[in-house]
Design a protein around this nucleic acid. Sequence first.
RNA 1: GGCCCGUUCGUCUAGUGGUUAGGACUCAUGGUUUUCAUCCAUGCAACAGGGGUUCGAUCCCCCUACGGGCUACCA
Length: 468
Amino acid sequence: MNKPVVRFAPSPTGYLHIGGARTALFNWLYAKKNGGTFLLRIEDTDLERSKSEYVDQITDALSWLGFNWDDNVVLQSKNKSRHEEAVNQMIKAGTAYRCFLTKEELDVLRSKSEKKKELFRVPKTFRDYSLDDQQKLIDEGKDFTVRLKIPDGITEFSDLVYGTIKVDNKELDDFIIARSDGSPTYNFVVAVDDSDMNISHVIRGDDHLANTPKQILVYKALGLAIPTFAHLPMILGSDKKRLSKRHAATNVQEYKEKGFTPTSIINYLSLLGWNPDSDQEIFDISELINAFNFSQVQKKPATFDEKKLLWVSGQQMAKTETSDVIKEIEILDSNWGISQDSKYKKEVISLVKDRSKTLNDLIEISNVFFDDNISYNKEMGSKVLDDNALQIIKDLYEALSIEENWMRDSIESIFDNLMIQHEVGLGKLIKPVRFALTGLGYGPGIFDMMILLGKDRCLDRLSKAVKL
RNA sequence: GGCCCGUUCGUCUAGUGGUUAGGACUCAUGGUUUUCAUCCAUGCAACAGGGGUUCGAUCCCCCUACGGGCUACCA
């Protein structure tokens, strides 16, 4: 079997969203698994809506995810002359024809049919005009579109996900392949470009399933080799509607900003609409490449669930080496821990890594170790630091300040003494102390934290908290 | 309207012509951590409906309902 060539072909009319990322992922996985080629084509033929800043956003997001494309990015708009050539070739060959019906005429006919509840079909008025007759109309100055001459018969293909799909060509109109301004339409260019790029496997969203027979007819009309198709089910928002800009967070960039790593996002996305044929849910990238297979791709749409993403992210965090986690944080926030000792940073992260789900969690908690200017929430302070708690902290301060031995055992025994002295459990002790030290209601184990912070900073913070 | 595709716990999914329909997330409860989180255990919870075929259908067929896509001089 030849090495597959696949492509991801977004249109630059917006940022890369989660659904697009999933399509890119499955393309990329398939290419990697089979030693194939992954290409990127930007479908920028809709000049009205396409923006170059979106191209940059999309390529940035793909790079961040690690979906590196082989070869240069193909801009569809650059293939204009090739598309024109293909259209002319088809007119000459008689597989396409010039249609002189105007949009206005067609709109009238269409609405008439709709009123009568009849099925609308584009009239085939000009379908069998000879090239000479067509030329005469052109000479008269008439505008025309070019339509594919759909042959009789059945168009059938085998989709890697959906199996055999069959459509009677009677269901298809002679659709436009070139507009009256000469620009080619989607279902036409996509076939020409995929063929020119030697795409062997077209892997895309299943919103294109119904377009596929049309594209196959273009391949046939041009005598081109037909690729294999694999359509992926849609990803839905929590309201069961197709994921779109209306939904909360759909931009890949937003997930980066929320502190998710590429691996976590890829891991979670892979589980939407696909199963590894095992109980495994947490994958690193190479495991995923290994396990990927179209036979396990789902036909029904899947709903995006951020809670599970969060869980996957936490699992990934726990199994990632501390030094790699630090690298990820520094990619996200280049100012993080900038003036801190690298050994100290490592100790901080390994202390909080297993209890954090996102890089942002890590950044927030680690800040407690970097910045001695603790900001205390007043409302929370008045709740946690009642008179009893304040007395405990004062006593703790006294005991700690005369402690020579800043070790876990000695700190623990100080706490033991305080528990007896104040007749409270450790829980009642820890909460105010943690708040005094960090301003937070959660965080790593109190003793580990105190050892890492060191005696001076602990005493300093305790005294500050008392003065609140 | 026509054509195409789909429908298993709330969510992601496994599964087979005979199963107590399995796992994961979420949620609840309990345990560990004398706190929180993690972790562990237990629990709640599903075959869209109706007809067939069959000794027996969640699984095969048909219909209905629901959802999605295409039906554009959008992509």
